[in-house]
Design a protein around this nucleic acid. Structure first.
Length: 469
RNA sequence: CGGGAAGUAGCGCAGCUUGGUUAGCGCGCCUGGUUUGGGACCAGGAGGCCGCGGGUUCGAAUCCCGCCUUCCCGACCA
């Protein structure tokens, strides 16, 4: 029987394909309140793997986890002028509680610079208290105008790091450290998504920051997605919240702070960076199930062999799960493909008679047989291969769809289907407005060698222009 | 929030123009049986405030008004 489309093909309607995958892979549902999201177990399992990998890197970078309240006094937001201006339009504000009107409304945090700043001021006395390196895993609320599951929901889950330092140089170096050693490393090594690192042009900066860094990934449709961000906040928040320390010389000095975050949007990016017309394609390192072992027939000899294979895989640390045959074989295969399980092991009587099992890669569809006794040896290597092939495939796709251009007009043309890279000198205010009018944005600024500049004023910078999610 | 489209069973849709008995179809779901190497088949069955509220009418899924939600394109954004 011919395989037919279970999902809308990407080429026909990419946004529709995305929604089909989210629904059919059982990742998430819309919540009852506009813009909210119910994350289903399979989607949440992916998020938990993302959390684990990012959390380990954050701790390796020296930050500690803490937790701050969901509710923030409205007055805190107003303490930093740009910050309040940036976030006011999308705040959810609680005016009534306990059956009474509150004397001061409280906002549901859209981000936590303000509360954390308040407590940093309390906790920091001396230069010996610096740097103070904090992170929290939390939910935040931003009343978005156009929500999309995972990519932009009114409430989302994220980690937000907040640090205070004695000097600008130290703060800048730490923000960069997080950007490369946590975010870039995670995106490349775990999500298998190559990214362009750079700084945001002034107009796209975080509200209250003096510099915003970004990791921009390319989706299968050529659009950009900001996958993580790090901000140097200078002394803006330190001034607003009186974050002072006493220096070695006994002087009161203002701190320099940073903040940095990554969210459940990463799940959306993961879907769009690797997925194909058959559904999700998960890199093994984020896959809750790396290997699905399918019994072709629900009969004792086959089932016993399946269990042996699963336990051998688990013994070498592979996340393997058994699908014992209930329902048709084709149906089960299709379901696991939609869910993006990287490797499928098919165990059936014909193969077993020859002492082998069939192994099929989700990413390439390549099918091979391996001896039952060598499964535990060969599968981990195969998974590693899939991981690196997926990264390479994503990189090839990105590079093939990134073009150097010499004018804004060419950039507008190229950025319809990919990234355009051009000299930042060519883009003034009116050119930027021209791009924006075409639904294009400057995703980031880079040096010629692809490294991250310190400011937009450096000479000879390049900018990457694209449509974005 | 502006422009467009749409809300009828879990999902996808027909019916509405021209109001009229018990509102249909496909997939899915349940039961039994036969199946299982790429979305199986047969038989039986369950499941509906036709998005919400109001109006017109003897009578509304159908006509009118308001609202809500979802999707697409913008502005905002992780």
């Amino acid at each position: 029987m011919a395989t037919q489309n279970v999902l809308t093909p990407q080429s026909e309607d990419f946004p529709r394909w995305y929604q089909d995958v989210v629904a059919k892979a059982e990742m998430a549902d819309n919540g009852p309140v506009r813009g909210t999201m119910v994350i289903r177990p399979y989607g949440y399992a992916i998020w938990e793997r993302i959390q684990g990998e990012i959390d380990a890197r954050i701790k390796e970078a020296g930050a500690q986890n803490a937790y701050f309240p969901l509710f923030i006094p409205e007055s805190y937001l107003s303490k930093e002028a740009e910050h309040v201006e940036g976030f006011s339009p999308e705040l959810a504000v609680v005016t009534h509680a306990g059956g009474e009107e509150l004397t001061e409304p409280v906002v549901v945090r859209p981000t936590s610079e303000t509360v954390i700043g308040e407590f940093m001021a309390k906790w920091i006395q001396s230069y010996r208290d610096l740097p103070l390196l904090l992170n929290q895993w939390a939910n935040v609320v931003r009343w978005e105008l156009r929500p999309r599951l995972f990519l932009r929901s009114s409430e989302f889950l994220w980690q937000e790091g907040h640090t205070a330092h004695a000097t600008l140089e130290d703060a800048a170096a730490y923000a960069m450290k997080i950007h490369t050693e946590v975010y870039e490393d995670f995106l490349n090594e775990v999500l298998a998504v190559p990214t362009f690192l750079g700084i945001k042009p002034p107009r796209e900066r975080f509200a209250g920051a003096r510099n915003t860094m970004t990791c921009e990934g390319m989706m299968r449709d050529g659009k950009a997605l900001q996958m993580a961000t790090s901000h140097e906040l200078g002394q803006n928040f330190a001034k607003a919240f009186d974050i002072y320390y006493q220096s070695e010389e006994g002087q009161a000095q203002l701190c320099y702070t940073t903040s940095w975050g990554s969210s459940t949007r990463l799940v959306g990016g993961l879907i769009m960076a690797h997925g194909d017309d058959r559904g999700l394609v998960l890199p093994p390192r984020v896959a809750p199930i790396e290997v699905i072992v399918i019994s072709v027939r629900d009969e004792p000899g086959v089932n016993d062999a399946c269990e042996t294979v699963v336990s051998q895989l688990k013994a070498v640390g592979v996340r393997a799960q058994l699908d014992r045959g209930r329902g048709s074989f084709g149906r089960r295969v299709t379901d696991w493909e939609i869910k993006g399980v990287p490797l499928r092991v098919e165990v059936g009587p014909r193969d077993l008679a020859e002492g082998v099992v069939s192994v099929v890669r989700r990413d390439s569809g390549d099918k091979s047989t391996i001896g039952v006794s060598s499964v535990a040896q060969e599968v981990p290597a195969l998974l590693a291969r899939i991981q690196s092939d997926l990264f390479q495939r994503a990189k090839d796709h990105r590079d093939a769809n990134t073009c150097d251009v010499a004018s804004v007009a060419q950039a507008i043309d190229v950025a319809q289907t990919g990234f355009a890279r051009l000299s930042w000198d060519l883009v003034g205010d009116s050119e930027e407005a021209e791009l924006n009018a075409q639904a294009l944005t400057i995703r980031c600024l880079q040096r010629g060698d692809g490294s991250v500049p310190e400011s937009e004023l450096e000479p000879d910078l390049l900018c990457i222009v694209a449509k974005a999610y």
